[in-house]
Amino acid sequence: MQYRRILPMVIACTLAGCSGRPAAVVPQFDPAGMAEQALAAYDADGDGRLAGAELDASPAIKKHLARYDADSDGAVSEQELQDRFAQWEEEGVGFRRLDVRVTIDGRPLSGATVTFEPEAFMTDWVKPATATTDRSGMAKISVAPEDLPAALKDRASGLRGVCVGAYRVKVTHPSDKLPPAYPAGDALGAETSRDAMGPLEEIQLSSHG
C-alpha cells in the first residue's frame, strides 16, 4: 500500500521538524547476533529457547510474547527471536517520539523518573532514554542529546525520542517508596517498535508490587 511506503518518511519528517529534506533514521540491528545474545543471557537450561521463568528475565519479550512466539507454543526459539528483530529492520523506522503516562493505584505519579534501559541483547546503537513525570504523570521519553542518531543531530534543536528496540522500564521516585521491582527494572518491559506501541504508553504501577 502507498500508505505503508510513505509512513517512514512522514515519521522522519516529523522528527526532523520538516526542515528541508527529511533525515532517514535507519535502525542498526544484527538480528542473528541479537537472537544469539538473548539466548546466551536468558536461556538458563540451555535448550535453545526461552520459556517459563526464563521469560521473567526479559520483561520486554515477556510482555510482547505473542509477537515473538509465531507457533504459539509458549516458548521463543532462536529463529523466532531473529525473525522478530528482522521485522524491526523491515519497518525502516529507527527513531520515534514516545510519551508515557505513569499512574500508581490509578492516580497520576508526578516527579517520577522513568528510564527505558536497553535489554542486554540490543546493539550499542540503541541508547537509554529517560524523563521525569509532570503533575499529570506525563513525560516525554528521550535519549540524551549526544545520543541522538547521527542523521538527526544537526536537523532539529530540542528533538526528543527513543530508538526502536526492547527495553527494561525502570521507575524511581525521590520520596515515594515504590516496590523494589519497579526501580530495578524487573517488573516492566517495553518494545518501542511501531507495531507494538503507540505514541502514548500507559505505565500502571501498584503500591503492592
Rank of each mutant, 00 (worst) to 15 (best):
D43E: 10
D43C: 12
A44C: 15
A44L: 07
G46V: 05
D47C: 01
D47P: 00
G48A: 08
G48D: 06
G48H: 02
R49M: 09
R49P: 12
R49H: 13
L50P: 09
L50K: 15
A51H: 08
G52S: 12
A53C: 02
A53W: 02
E54T: 08
E54D: 10
E54F: 07
L55I: 10
L55G: 00
D56Y: 00
A57Y: 09
S58H: 07
A60P: 01
I61F: 12
I61W: 14
I61C: 15
K63P: 06
K63G: 06
H64Y: 15
L65K: 11
A66L: 11
Y68V: 11
S72F: 05
S72W: 02
D73Y: 12
D73V: 13
A75Y: 00
A75P: 05
A75M: 05
V76P: 01
S77C: 03
S77H: 12
E78V: 03
Q79T: 14
E80C: 07
L81G: 08
D83W: 12
D83L: 15
R84F: 06
R84I: 10
A86L: 15
Q87F: 07
W88L: 11
E89K: 04
E90P: 02
E90K: 09
E90V: 02
E91D: 12
E91C: 05
E91N: 10
V93K: 05
V93H: 02
G94M: 03
G94A: 05
F95W: 06
R96C: 07
R97C: 08
L98H: 02
